[in-house]
Simulated scan of single mutants.
Amino acid sequence: MKRRSHVGTYIVLTVAAIVSALPNLLVLVGSLRPNTEIVANPTGLPTSLYLGNYARAWEEGSIGIYFVNSLIVTLVSLALALVLFLPAAYALGRWQFRFAGLVQALFLIGLMIPLKIGILPLVQMYDQWRLIDNLGGLILVYTAQTAPLMILILSTFYRQLPDTLEAAAMIDGASPFRTFFSVMTPLMTPAIAASVILSIGPIWNDFFMPLVLLRNEENFTIPVGFSSFFGEYGVDRGMLFAGIVIAVAPVVIFFALAMRQIVGGLTAGIEK
């Protein structure tokens, strides 16, 4: 009976995986077909390996510019978030001070309140600060957006580290800052990887904030840049599919390479 239940589970998971992968496979196959073939037979297989869609997406569709903008915004936002929120998470996870629970609760509220609710005052403030149509302004928004999730993951992991580590560092004469940088944070690799990876998707794939805050096409990120692929009377599906593959490939590769760190970071506290 146990073996049969395992077989049934594998069948269900296999079917679910195929259903989930089918749209992605259609996009990948479509990116290797000329637009005329896609229009004639949307679900057909390519008769030959056609890479012209990728060249046109990169040059005519300006996907290269959008790709670089998305890369800059994502990397700088995550780097800035780590610089700001690692110390904050360490303080919340390791130090006992007044109103620590209230501060933690305020960060967690950010997981329940969408950032889009405050878009009107944000635009007004950015207009006064001349941050509209500026990648720096978009970076600040995404840095703040990552705060609740990063604080939750990192502070929880910091809290689970043994107190003997700090005690040993104190006996050796290490200051609190030296303990943070040299003793505790190097043990946080799984949690840092998990928080970074879970924050990449909402930044890389976001359409709303760049649409509202950016004006110049040279500053567009990939999701907003895709809107230029749609013409008034039609769309070049082959070029669109190639652009989607180019946009999704870095995230998929990064997830595949960091999967062990994701699982390690999310399950680190189970055995404690």
Rank of each mutant, 00 (worst) to 15 (best):
S20C: 13
Y54R: 07
L92S: 06
L71A: 11
A194G: 07
L198C: 09
G101L: 00
P202K: 13
I63G: 00
A194I: 07
A17W: 06
Y66D: 09
E37A: 15
W204V: 11
L108F: 12
I244V: 13
V39D: 01
I200G: 08
V263K: 00
M239T: 11
A17G: 05
D133C: 08
T47F: 11
V103P: 00
L214M: 14
M209Y: 14
R215N: 15
I117E: 01
V263D: 02
A81G: 02
N35F: 03
L152V: 02
V29N: 04
F107T: 07
L214H: 13
F177A: 10
D172G: 04
S175Q: 01
T146Y: 03
L84D: 05
V19Q: 05
F226W: 10
K272G: 13
D236H: 04
A105T: 06
L71F: 14
L26P: 05
L213V: 12
V212G: 10
L211S: 15
L266N: 12
R3V: 04
P42S: 08
A169Q: 03
S5E: 13
L106H: 04
I109E: 00
A167Q: 12
V12Y: 09
A16E: 05
N69P: 08
S31P: 00
A258I: 01
A242M: 08
T14F: 15
N53Q: 10
G238R: 02
S195E: 01
V83I: 13
V251F: 10
I65C: 06
V68C: 04
F181T: 09
F207L: 13
I222V: 15
L120Y: 07
S155W: 00
S20M: 14
L49Y: 12
F67K: 02
G234I: 06
L82R: 02
V15F: 12
W95C: 09
P210F: 11
M209V: 14
V245E: 09
G93M: 05
I109G: 05
F97Y: 10
G8N: 12
P190W: 08
V103K: 00
L122W: 05
R215D: 15
W95G: 06
H6M: 09
G93P: 03
R159T: 03
L266R: 13
V19L: 14
S62F: 06
V183N: 04
E217K: 14
T156R: 07
G201I: 10
I65E: 07
V183M: 07
S182Q: 14
T14L: 13
T185H: 10
I113D: 08
G136Q: 09
D236L: 01
Y10R: 12
L80C: 11
M188C: 03
N35S: 15
T47D: 14
G8A: 11
V15D: 05
F226N: 13
I113G: 09
P202D: 13
T36F: 00
L49W: 15
I132E: 01
